[in-house]
Write a protein that binds this DNA or RNA. Structure first.
Lengths: 118, 118
DNA sequence: GGAAGTGCTTTCCTGTAGGAAACTACCTTA
DNA sequence: TAAGGTAGTTTCCTACAGGAAAGCACTTCC
């Protein structure tokens, strides 16, 4: 008898797996969570503000990641008509729905550290 | 006045950012969530079972990812002294603590799909 | 004795993520 | 008019992730 059994072949599993892939794809890369976390804390920051806040990021990556996040409506970009032109980045209402997820990630990571050391 | 301001420079932010990086690093790669999800559903599966369950994964990646997960104590590996030698992979008690996180990921992804289409 | 199943490892190859540095362009202040 | 701040883009380079395919060792079924 040849095994073909599929635990994962139920619709509910397929949907969940796909959903996890979607989420991870949207939040992929080294910097997305740093940017989102900073914008959630900071509320309205310029490009250079973000460069200063996020240690180690380069302008190319910041620019690219912000574009990704904007495309997915997680971050808004507003050009202000100030003396030297400035740009305001902020979390959108929709981006803010990531807070519970970010909290779970942080919570698990903190507990992981404690279980490894403590 | 030169800006050096650092929202992220508070200890609590540093710890949270580090924790998120830790978590993402442990769960990095294309297959970790699929493997963990399958093991949570399936409870005790052999290597070939996992290959059948996880659509598209190759033996090299499955082997490598399982080793990673075992190193981090999220998955257990037990060699059974059966007629043809078999290996049992299972979620550890510690690995099971990822369930809330996985649920958040799935939940957000499902809501994302609905917001894009719906 | 050959096919097929278990559980991997090894080799080879490719695409992409991401870093460093330079460059653009425009404005303000000294 | 040079320095410094705004907000990026472009180019070049490298390392790592991950896929395909083959091989290995051992066993049982037909």
């Amino acid at each position: 008898m040849k095994k073909k059994a599929k635990i994962n072949d139920t619709p509910v599993c397929q949907v969940r797996m796909q959903a996890i892939s979607d989420t991870m794809s949207i939040l992929s890369g080294k910097w997305k969570f740093h940017i989102l976390g900073t914008l959630i804390e900071g509320n309205k920051l310029g490009f250079m503000d973000l460069m200063r806040e996020i240690d180690g990021i380069g302008s190319k990556m910041l620019s690219k990641e912000l574009q990704d996040l904007e495309l997915n409506h997680l971050v808004s970009r507003t050009v202000l008509d100030t003396k030297p032109i400035t740009v305001e980045y902020a979390i959108t209402e929709y981006g803010a729905t990531l807070s519970p997820l970010i909290n779970e990630l942080a919570k698990w990571g903190i507990e992981y550290r404690q279980s490894v050391h403590g």
